Deep mutational scan, measured.
Amino acid sequence: YKIYPYDSLIVTNSISVKLPKDVDRTRLERHLSPEEFQEVFGMSIEEFDRLALWKRNDLKKKALLF
């Protein structure tokens, strides 16, 4: 996945969300650098992957990456 800054990946309720063209809309968190991922989620990507799907989705919603 290509890395993008968190600010360019957050999704708000506005209709005209302009995400970069090559971003996987269903896995926005994968486009964060490991350092920024840790900062946003408070855990590593590996720890995040071990969580239940509902928990990952809940965290993504709170981080505006859903």
Rank of each mutant, 00 (worst) to 15 (best):
Y1M: 11
Y1E: 08
Y1S: 09
Y1N: 11
K2A: 14
I3Y: 09
I3L: 06
I3N: 05
I3P: 08
Y4E: 02
Y4K: 01
Y4N: 01
P5Q: 04
P5G: 05
P5T: 07
P5R: 04
P5M: 04
D7Y: 14
S8I: 13
S8A: 14
L9P: 01
L9H: 01
L9C: 02
L9T: 00
I10R: 11
I10Q: 07
V11Q: 14
V11C: 11
T12N: 09
T12F: 15
N13V: 08
N13R: 10
N13T: 10
S14D: 15
I15G: 15
I15F: 08
S16K: 12
S16Y: 09
V17E: 14
V17C: 15
K18Q: 14
K18H: 15
P20H: 06
P20W: 04
K21H: 14
K21C: 13
D22V: 04
D22Y: 05
D22G: 08
D22C: 05
D22A: 05
V23S: 03
D24Q: 05
D24I: 06
D24H: 06
R25Q: 12
T26H: 14
T26D: 13
R27K: 13
R27L: 07
R27F: 07
L28F: 02
L28H: 01
E29R: 00
E29I: 01
H31G: 01
H31C: 02
H31Y: 09
L32E: 00
L32F: 01
L32A: 00
S33H: 08
S33L: 04
S33C: 07
P34I: 14
P34V: 15
P34G: 09
P34N: 10
P34F: 11
E36G: 05
F37N: 00
Q38K: 13
E39H: 13
E39C: 11
F41E: 00
F41G: 00
F41K: 00
G42V: 06
G42M: 11
G42E: 10
I45H: 08
E46M: 12
E46A: 13
F48Y: 06
F48P: 00
F48L: 03
F48A: 00
D49N: 09
R50H: 10
R50L: 14
L51T: 04
L51G: 02
L51I: 06
A52E: 14
A52K: 09
W54L: 08
K55A: 10
R56T: 03
R56D: 01
N57T: 11
N57A: 08
D58Y: 12
D58A: 14
K60N: 01
K60A: 02
K61A: 08
K62Y: 06
K62D: 08
A63W: 04
L64Q: 12
L64N: 12
L65A: 01
L65E: 02
L65Y: 01
L65D: 02
